[in-house]
Design a protein around this nucleic acid. Structure first.
Lengths: 234, 234
DNA sequence: CGTAAACAGTTTACACTGTAAACATTTCAT
DNA sequence: ATGAAATGTTTACAGTGTAAACTGTTTACG
């Protein structure tokens, strides 16, 4: 089944719209994301864009899901680049990649993890699955580390709190139908993620960097302390 | 020096503008923060507001600084309400108050710690001092805990990393001219803050709650684990 | 007290924003 | 080749922030 000219041009236009939107946002922040701005940049009239996205919100949603996937991809390739077998290296690489991606793509990160653009409401059935991939990367690392006995969590990280058990089991079932992965992996991922995220968020919005000074070092050391706390030997 | 009628009415109008802005934002999110909306609500014409704030940005700045102070006040009174002498209780109370304030005042929290409203740029010389108060509360707790030997940090939290030392010393000097407070207190505050913040931020924007289930419990347990890790006995 | 200045408000206007409706043109399938 | 579908433009409307000019009120001072 070969594509007709029109279908191909349509796909290209979709790509051009998103690319233009990204360029304008990189230059002027989320304030640069306007129908008229994108249209002018592309040599079109604003209403023409409505042939591609019914509302500006739909374009935002498309950008957001792409960003979630781009972040998850960055984490995965960082893990892949780490020493095979040394899962702790992968965890450090993933945490640092999370930070690096945020710092290198600040607006894209704000778009997914920051306050929603005023008036925008994310259709969760679309964004949530994409969003989940990030957490899945970390869960995967802990599955590997626990299996290989590379991570030996001391109390209180050696077992899932009973208060969370049943709900986490259900989440695990929905995501992984085989249900083979240890529940503790999900719990440990949920312990680590907020620590990484909080540091990155505060640094990105310049709340903590000026106080700490060397954020590069601080982030590294915090991630290492985190790894040690949950049972890795670094 | 008694206030003239006009001065008093002017002050009241300032208050009414901010109160109206807060009400509209609570109802419609940051998208509800419009000059015209506030004016209509107050029975004025939009340009009239410009007698009080030269730009909408200035009103936003006023709201932001008030929010920083309100959050810091909430932390302080939570500490004050905790068992005297039990600094660990104060730390837990402060962390939980941070979360509670964010959940109870989501838009206000987003305004200070979320992505800036598109097009808005914070004048840092105004917002930074107000922002600092939050961190100062935590630093104060660690000063107290270290002095009373209530907190006995194990490695690697028993000393300030040399890579951060000189910069933290300078920060400490600028904030506290006596320079008496132990540097380690600032370091421990910087270790804890991102952990608390990350959890709250992810919960507030609904990235982690649906996965965890019982966020109330999870936050509590995470804060306790954090306290133990840096040398408190809970 | 009377007057001039400062203040507080309205009216009008402009340059933006998203988007709906009507219409013209191009492209494709039959 | 013809009808339908897709893609664009034009025009329009209801929002947005805010600047300029103007009017009325309140205050401070000679």
């Amino acid at each position: 089944m070969t594509k007709t000219n029109r279908e191909q041009r349509r796909e290209e236009t979709f790509l051009e719209i998103k690319a233009t939107a990204r360029r304008l946002m990189a230059e002027h922040g989320t304030a640069g994301l306007t129908v008229r701005g994108i249209a002018k940049e592309m040599g079109m009239t604003p209403p023409a864009l409505y042939r591609y996205y019914d509302r500006l919100d739909d374009l935002i949603t498309a950008l957001i899901t792409e960003n979630f996937h781009a972040l998850a991809d960055a984490l995965e390739s960082a893990c892949a680049a780490a020493t095979p077998g040394r899962t702790v290296d992968k965890l450090m690489a993933a945490a640092l990649a999370y930070r690096r991606w945020a710092l290198d793509n600040p607006v894209d990160f704000e778009l997914i993890y920051g306050t929603p653009i005023p008036g925008y409401h994310a259709p969760q059935e679309i964004t949530v699955p994409a969003s989940a991939r990030t957490l899945v990367v970390f869960v995967g690392l802990f599955v590997e580390a626990l299996e290989n006995r590379e991570c030996m969590p001391p109390p209180p990280y050696d077992r899932v709190p009973p208060e969370l058990r049943s709900h986490l089991e259900q989440i695990m079932r929905d995501g992984d139908p085989t249900g083979s992965a240890p529940l503790l992996a999900l719990y440990l991922a949920l312990v680590c993620w907020p620590q990484i995220h909080g540091l990155v968020m505060l640094e990105l919005l310049e709340h903590i960097g000026p106080v700490v000074g060397d954020m590069e070092f601080f982030a590294r050391s915090q991630f290492e302390n985190m790894g040690r706390a949950i049972g890795f030997t670094i």
